[in-house]
Each structure stands twice: as structure tokens, then as C-alpha cells.
Design a protein around this nucleic acid. Structure first.
Lengths: 338, 338
DNA sequence: CTCTGGCACTCTTCGCACGCGAGTGCCAGA
DNA sequence: TCTGGCACTCGCGTGCGAAGAGTGCCAGAG
């Protein structure tokens, strides 16, 4: 069990190290924070903290730096979330309100997050799973070649080519289009499969093959689009990582290009609030020297996607968490309005 | 005027420097390339080359490295384009043929280019200016609210909302859709404005406002979409840039996030063949220590967009140019097929 | 006139010894 | 349990000298 003062010492170490990027010693600590005790006492506390694995020293005779475990304790017990100031909040809101469409909202969010946190920002596009179908359109490009266009209530449009097993007449096409829309328009994606299941039965035998093909393409589109896209930005902030550059930054850049990795990373965050994954807590190896701060956002009560930032484990956690939370809140608001 | 041998010396310097990343001296040169002359002679040649500004020495008593001007001469006069080997070409083709849609083609192209050249790859989405309209679709979302969907022959789909000044009946909608398609389907974007100019005249007075609105939205879409999108990848290769890391890499990362900058960069390449911009030849300041190798690609004879790579000025120009050219060729081919 | 070998000179780099200073650990005493 | 003191450890910066690479120039040969 750690005494109250030892926790204060840990907090002071984290704060100083985040500020200076240099190992912090006992003397400097007592000078900068008025702990009311002498350096010698602090040294004893530091020895205890080191025994417990919360801090470590890079070399003998250097100061201490927090370990992942130390940051974890700091985030969980010692620091809150620093709220944004009123002017900051206004700036966020103004900036996001200028967006003209969904792509623009996401793009602006990424820029904003990157600027506010001075780190790499990752924003997932709003998820389709909770979405509803606004309209399905079918176009004949050739006698046996259709284009399927799916329009969602979040304003996204997805298209797919469909090669038909047999030529498909204009009348059949109009019929299919009408039936399809009357069944699925306004419905949730998850409900679509059962709603269209028996649709081929309503058609002549010669058209059934095509109808089935169209339907399976539609269902595929719905599923595939749950492999959600995302946008990243602020990679230039990676240069502020540290001195031991290339070795650290390379795997991070590689991880950032693997959308799958990032999606998994964001997906892991289960909490309703802000989630912080520190260093080795991240499953992906390349991100072992980074921390990920993420949170879900959405319009109304529902989470439709996640956003977050990736930065060095030595980051300003309270500030970053505050910024991430604030941006998520305003993005949700913007999405609800549109 | 430079003698033949001096050009050979320059070529040797470029090749060695690209290989070793270290300033190259006269002795090493005579050992590695059998120039048939002594180091002393080479020294004289190097002094001449330095006077002309083709090479420079970082410090007194170090070897020489090529200047931008030196690379320029090398690219223009001393080196050709290194063709891809047959297995490489097959690999490119196979990889690209696996693509399922336009997004996928672009995504695969980026990955491929980044891997082949081990540099940062930039691929522009196929441009709409040269494209033709495949189909225009109009959907009624509400009595006075339409959705306009534009489908191009390159497989791109763009949608816009249209708020009508007055309610618009189903019959009028079908009429407009039919007339619109009969006029513009298969036509070039650039021809569309004049083709639809008199379309409102064919409608009742009460519908004319809506028709005009739809048309102007369509024209806007055509114009706006010339602000083309692009995709980048292989940023992890930036780590191979050099030793003086953060200072060089940061502005490059920043430039890469400015899509406008990149589009301008690619747009500048006017040649039918591969274009190389070396160091300070790039207008954007952040890219002054990089070279950009780009080329247009397209189906048939026409260039619909550009692609290229960004790397250190010290790059393998012949190999990079070969890879860029080959990828462009196969992407064009894939686009033509689909 | 061009090429070559030789020579002196310039700098960078590396290794090494040294001293400084920060920081630690431990201990005895309050 | 806290404090002050003290000895000890190391990392880091500095200065110096040797080594090595590379250059420029010059005089002589072809």
C-alpha cells in the first residue's frame, strides 16, 4: 500500500517528466513542488515506488522516469480530466460547424484533434450498423450489368457493380427497385437480410437468378461497410516524440498505415468514457511506446464510432483526455443536427 | 562544356552516393568504377564539376555529394529509366488485378508503389475532367427534396442533395431523368453545360425553377470534383531519409497532409513521360530536400490523373522512374478493362 | 595540353583521460 | 518516521592527440 505522500511524489514525477522530458531527481522534485519534506525523504519514497514498479531509472545515477504502470496509476487515481476552457470550447464548436458534409466533418475533426493535442489524431467514420437505409437505386449500365447504389441516412453513398446471370428487362428492374425500396427504406441495416429474404419468390423464374445476385450484393455491401474507414492526421507531430527517433517512429508510422490495426485499437475501448491505453497495454507491438486516448462519439445516446489520439506515453494525460472528450462531444452534436 | 569523362565521374559520384549515403572521394571512385585514370585526374575533374555547381563538399576534407543541379544533369543526360523485370511486372499486374472497385485500385496502387520504390507514394483519384457521364439518377427523398447521383465511366459516384424551390411531381421527375440522360449519357463532362442549357424550356413554368436548380447542382458537381482527392502511403519509408531526421522529416509530413500542395505538385508535371522534380525545383518549401517522381496515367490514350512518389533527393532515379512508369501503365490498363 | 605521382595541408572523427555534477543509498541521530 | 550528512556511482562534457580521408597544387612525363 502506498502512502498518500508517495502518491503525491509519483504525481509530481509524472508531471515534471511530461514537462521536461528529462529524468527527474529528488532534489528537483522538492524544489518545484512544495511537498514539505526533504530530498532524502523523497528518495526513500522513490526507492519504494521503484520497488513496486511505478518508476524506473534509465541509468544508475540518473533521475527516475515513470513506467507504464506508473502512468496507469497516475491516470486512474491521481489525475482527473482537464476540462477545456470556454474559449477553447467555442473555437471547437465554430470550427466544426463550418463543415459542409460528412467527409468534411471527419476531416475537420481530425485537424482539430491533432492541433489541440499536438499529437496524431484518428477518427473513425460514423458506423453504418446503427444506420438506416434511405434509398436503394438500381441502374442498368448494360443488359446484363447493373449498378447498385445504397444511400444511408448518415449521407453516405456506396455503389457496387452487379453482373447478372441473365439479361434483365427494364420492367423487371423497375419492379425490383420499387419492391426493394418499399421494404428496406427507413429500416435498419441489421434488419435488411430478413426483410428481403423472400423477394426472389415474387419474380419470374428467369429473373430470380439476377434478383438473388442483386440481393447478395446488397447484403455484402452492408457487411463490408462495417469494416469502417477512418482518417488520420497530425502525423507531423510524431517528430515531437523524443530523441531516439527513427527506431521509435517507424513502427508507429507502419501501424498507422494499417487501418485494421487502428480499427482494432479503437474498437477495444469499451468504456462509456474516455479510454486510455498505455504503452504495452496496446496489443500491437509497434505501438508499445505510445499511448492511445480514445472515446466513442455519436448523436443522441448511441455511440456510432470512435475517435482518439496516439502519442508518446509521456503525454499530458489530463489535457489530452479533456480535448478528446470535448471534441467527441461536439462532433456528436454536429452529427445530430445534420 | 564538360568532357565525356567528367560526365562519367559525375555519374559515378551519384551512383556511389545513392548507394552509400556518404560523401564519395576520388580514391574510392577510381577503385569502384574502372575509369582508367588515376585519383589525381579524378580530383581535377571533381574540382571542375564543383566549379560548375554539380557537386559540393559538406566540409573541407570530405568527399563530394551531388547538388540538385548534379542530380538534374544525371537524370536528364546520364541515366535512363530502368525497366522492371518480367517477374516484377507480373507481380504488379497480379496485385492490381485483385482490386474489386475504384477505391481498391487506388489503395492497392499506393501500397504497391510504396513497396516497390520504398518511398512515399501518392496517387490521385482518376480525374473527372476527361471523363464521360455514364448515368445521372434523380431520386425523390421528399416532395421538394431530390438527390442527384452522378455516375462516371471511371466508376466514381458522386451525390448531391437538391432542395427544390417548388414541389416536383413523379411524372416531371421521370421526364427530367429521361431527358437528362438522353442528352448527357456518354458525353464528356466539358460538353455537358452546353448540352443541358435549354432543358428548362421543355418544362412547364412551375417546374422550371426546380429543373434549373437541378442543372446548376449537376454543373457544380462536375466542377467541384475537379478538386480531386488523393491517397498517400508508405510514410514509414520517411525514416530512411537520413540521419538529420526531425528537421527534415517534419516539413515533409506537414506537406503530405496538405492535399492542396500535393495536387499542385502532381499537377505541375506536364510531360507525357515521367517527370522528376529535384530538391529546390519543388515550389513547396517543405519539400526542398525531396525529389518528386510523377507520371500521368489513364485508360486509352488519355491522362486521367497522376501518381508518383516523394523521396530524398538522394534516390535511385532510374529504378524509381521505372517503377513509377510501370505502375502507371498497369493501372491504366486495369482502368480500361473495368 | 593532359595525365600522373607525390607531397603538404586541412579537417573530421575517434579514443581516452579527466573533472564536474547530479543523483543515489545508507546510516546515525532527532 | 523524518532528516542531514557522506561516500559512491555514473553519465556527460571537455580537451588533447593520433589516425585517416580527402583535397589542392606542382612538377614532370607522355
Amino acid at each position: 500500500m502506498l502512502s498518500e505522500r508517495r502518491l503525491q511524489v509519483l504525481r509530481a514525477i509524472v508531471q515534471d517528466y511530461v514537462g521536461t522530458e528529462e529524468p527527474v531527481g529528488s532534489k528537483a522534485l522538492t524544489e518545484r513542488h512544495n511537498l514539505g519534506v526533504s530530498p532524502a525523504t523523497v528518495r526513500n519514497d522513490m526507492a519504494a515506488l521503484e520497488d513496486e514498479g511505478f518508476i524506473a531509472q534509465p541509468h544508475t545515477s540518473a533521475g527516475r522516469i515513470p513506467t507504464d504502470k506508473g502512468y496507469r496509476l497516475f491516470v486512474d487515481k491521481l489525475a482527473g480530466v482537464k476540462p477545456m476552457t470556454a474559449p477553447e470550447r467555442r473555437a471547437i464548436q465554430n470550427f466544426l460547424e463550418g463543415a459542409v458534409d460528412l467527409d468534411d466533418v471527419v476531416a475537420r475533426t481530425v485537424r482539430l484533434l491533432a492541433q489541440l493535442t499536438r499529437q496524431v489524431a484518428v477518427v473513425q467514420y460514423p458506423s453504418l450498423t446503427r444506420s438506416t437505409v434511405r434509398h436503394v437505386e438500381l441502374l442498368a449500365l448494360a443488359p446484363a450489368r447493373l449498378m447498385l447504389v445504397l444511400i444511408t441516412d448518415t449521407g453516405r453513398v456506396e455503389q457496387r457493380m452487379v453482373d447478372c446471370p441473365a439479361p434483365f428487362g427494364e420492367a423487371s428492374l423497375a419492379d425490383l427497385r420499387a419492391r426493394l425500396n418499399s421494404r428496406v427504406a427507413g429500416r435498419r441495416f441489421t434488419d435488411v437480410p430478413s426483410l428481403v429474404e423472400d423477394l426472389p419468390d415474387a419474380f419470374e423464374a428467369e429473373d430470380r437468378g439476377t434478383v438473388s445476385t442483386v440481393l447478395s450484393t446488397l447484403l455484402e455491401t452492408l457487411v463490408e461497410e462495417n469494416e469502417e474507414r477512418l482518417m488520420i492526421g497530425g502525423t507531423a507531430n510524431l517528430t515531437r516524440f523524443g530523441h531516439d527517433f527513427p527506431l521509435v517512429i517507424r513502427p508507429v508510422l507502419e501501424a498507422l498505415e494499417e487501418q485494421v490495426v487502428l480499427l482494432k485499437l479503437l474498437g477495444e475501448a469499451k468504456d462509456p468514457g474516455v479510454t486510455v491505453r498505455i504503452g504495452h497495454e496496446n496489443a500491437h507491438e509497434g505501438l508499445n511506446s505510445t499511448s492511445v486516448v480514445s472515446v466513442g462519439y455519436g448523436s443522441g445516446g448511441e455511440t456510432v464510432a470512435k475517435l482518439g489520439v496516439v502519442g508518446p506515453t509521456r503525454m499530458d494525460y489530463p489535457g489530452t483526455m479533456g480535448a478528446v472528450r470535448a471534441v467527441a462531444r461536439y462532433v456528436g452534436q454536429i452529427l445530430a443536427e445534420s
